[in-house]
Structure formats: C-alpha cells, structure tokens
Design a protein around this nucleic acid. Sequence first.
DNA 1: GCGAACTTAACGAACGTTCGCATGGGATGG
DNA 2: CCATCCCATGCGAACGTTCGTTAAGTTCGC
Lengths: 211, 211
Amino acid sequence: MGASAALKSRPSAEPDGAEAMLRVALSLFLEQGYHGASMRDIAQRAGVSVSAAYHYFPSKADMLRTIMVRVTEDLIADLEAARDGAGPDPAARLAAIVRAHVLLHTRRQDESFIGNSELRSLSLVDRRKVVALRDRVGQVFKDVVAEGCRRRVFSQPYAAETVRAILTMCTAVAGWYRANGPDRPETIAERYAELALRLVGAGRGEEGHTR
Amino acid sequence: MGASAALKSRPSAEPDGAEAMLRVALSLFLEQGYHGASMRDIAQRAGVSVSAAYHYFPSKADMLRTIMVRVTEDLIADLEAARDGAGPDPAARLAAIVRAHVLLHTRRQDESFIGNSELRSLSLVDRRKVVALRDRVGQVFKDVVAEGCRRRVFSQPYAAETVRAILTMCTAVAGWYRANGPDRPETIAERYAELALRLVGAGRGEEGHTR
DNA sequence: GCGAACTTAACGAACGTTCGCATGGGATGG
DNA sequence: CCATCCCATGCGAACGTTCGTTAAGTTCGC
C-alpha cells in the first residue's frame, strides 16, 4: 500500500481489498454454493463490514460473474497458447491442450469448480456471456480432434461423444484434485494427455514420455 | 397402491402427493439449486399450500436427502446387477457397469445431476451417508478395473486416475444429455462402454458391436 | 368423531441492499 | 505552509422482502 502510493490512479493487479474479497467470496461459494453464501458471511470472513463490501462490488451477483468470466477467459488463453505452441501435429496439439486444461483446473481449482457448477446462479445476461466463453473452450477441443480425424491420425467413429468425454473428464479434475494428494498437477496433466490420446485412438505405439 | 379408491379425496389427478412434491422439488433444485429454491416455490408449483408440503416431508432438507439417497442406492443396485450379469470377464464387466451407469444417468438425469452437485447442501450427517453410498459406487468400478489389471487383460499404468476418469466421464452425462437430442440412451451407453475399454487399454482388436 | 389432508396466517430470523455518517491521507489553492 | 476539499475506505443501523417453519382451524371420507 505505502510503496504503490503513486499508482493509485490505476487500480490494476495488486492484492487490494477487492481481490481479497473475491478470494473470500470464492471460497464461500465453493463451500455453500452461491445462494447458500450470504454477503454477511463474505464480509465477516474478509474482516470488513457488510456495507464495505459494496464499495468493491455493486452486488453479490457481480462477484460471481467476475469470478466466472475471469477464469474462463484465462482458460481460453491458456488453451490457445498451448495449441499454437505445440506445432501442427494433431496428437501433439491434443496432448498440449489437455495438459493446459488440467493444469489450470488444478492450479486454480476453486475458480474452475465454481465456473462449472454455478452457471445456473448467473443472471440471464451473464449466463449468456459465460456460456459463449465456454463454447469457445469446447470449440478448441473440437477443432483439434476434427483435424486429427481428417488426417486419419485419430481413429474413432464418434468425434462428438469423444470430445465431450475428454472435456468432461478434464473438467472434473477440479472436483477431486487435492493439493496435498499424492500427485503433482504436472503428473496428472501428463496422464490425462495420454488418456485423451487413447480416447481418440491415437498413439497406439508407445508414446515417448519426455520427462 | 393399485386399489387407490380410498385416496380419491381430491379429484385432482395425482398419483401420490409425496411423490409429486418430490418431483417438483427435484426440478426446482435443478433449476435454481437447493438454496435457490424456496418451499414457497415448491408448494406453489405442486399446487398446494406451503404448510401442506410439511405434511409430506418434515423439512426441505429431508426432500433433498430423500432424492439423493434414493437415486444413489438405485445406481448401486443397477451396477451390481450389471456386473454380476456380465460373467467373469473383466472387459465385459467394465462395459456392463459403464452401460448401466450411463443408462441411469440419462433415464434419471435430473436426480443424478442433483446427486452429483448438491452434496454440499446436505447436513453433515446426511452428507456422510450419501458420501458412503457414492464410495460404494466407486468401489464397484475400482474392483472391476483392478481385476482386469491383475489378469493382464487391461494394460494401463495408472489405475486410480483411469478409474476416476471413467467415473467422471460417465457421471457428466447427466449434465449434457438431452432427451430430444440425436442419440438414444442405449447408443450413448454403448459408445461410452467402448471409450472406457479404450481408457483401460482393453480391446485393442475390433470389438464385436452386437447390434 | 377421528384422523388425514389441507387451509390461512403468522412467527422470528436471515436475506441483499441502502442510508447517513466518520475518518484520514493526497491533491489544490491562496 | 496551511486551510481546504475530495474521495476512497469503512462503519452501524436500518430498509423491505423473503426465508424455513409452525400454530390453529377447516373439510371430509371413513
């Protein structure tokens, strides 16, 4: 706070009150659901009064929308970067986006879980926006798998079901991953990449596990 | 129950008051979440007064518990029947329980979805009970996959991750299945059985698709 | 007239949100 | 240099509404 006195005109990325409130709101939405968590709970756990919370966010709904939009936009950015950084090979691309998806869903597990489970708590207009973002996530996977099928490096007859299976399998990671569990995020990401390749019928031979 | 002549106290055609209320509660929990749905909503959509609802269930929490316990117990019964009816071959057993799992998650989609998403809304004691039931579901899959690995008809190194992937992939069906979509439940079940076999590394040759 | 089904009306608590006010450091003007 | 205003920050109290639940009474087939 003291050091950044000159920067107060631009409230960009700093661990300020709003960010702290978002973190608290996130953990409460996670524990009790959006409707189950009250503004009084959030304010109390953040160590401020109820009305102080309304200085940072105009409403409770705005907190949820902020959380969901942000994590979904970051997911899209991660996926596109992973895909473009993996070269043109569809198998490498699929492995890369699965890794990126799993990594984000472990490293930012709580946001990801809320992003997947509280769609119904959004207002109609917010829901449309988040659904559109989620569609873009699915499209990245669809395109990669479709390209692999076209080039015949993937062999499976039901592309739509398979994409859905991969996507839901990767998404569910946010539901069961535990940071103090036996596996590191990178390990899980690597294994899920292999599982995804099995699902699309690629890599029947041994995949070189560069690690 | 068939001789329901004694129950025609009201001409409104309802098979059973409690069962109808459960159905309404289920659909509202689905749309708005447990905390988002009020007893007034439920009673109104069921066509009774608020207090009449309390003649059938002692509390709102009791409705949720009833829904979740019932569908999970039925799932366990379906899984065990499918497993035992499939003979001793681990691949046939895995395919059978995946089919059964997917079928129940499409045919009783709403209950299944609530059973997977509203655990956090249960009281502590109810949650423990449902978690125990869900553990039994997972155990059925674990046992079948472990047996397949022991007999070397499944080839994959990460049994725990793979079981979790299969389970979450099958569970997520309740989230996206649409009854008026292009695929019938049986079709989806068959494809998911094949996907599961791919995940465990079984059936490298062509599976006979008896259909 | 008994009990199950169902009603109206209300209880106290908790909800999201708003109001009026206090504080205190940084910019502004004389 | 000091008085001034600004405004982000923060508070306690209250707004009107809705919450889950209950009490007391009514209807009606048996």
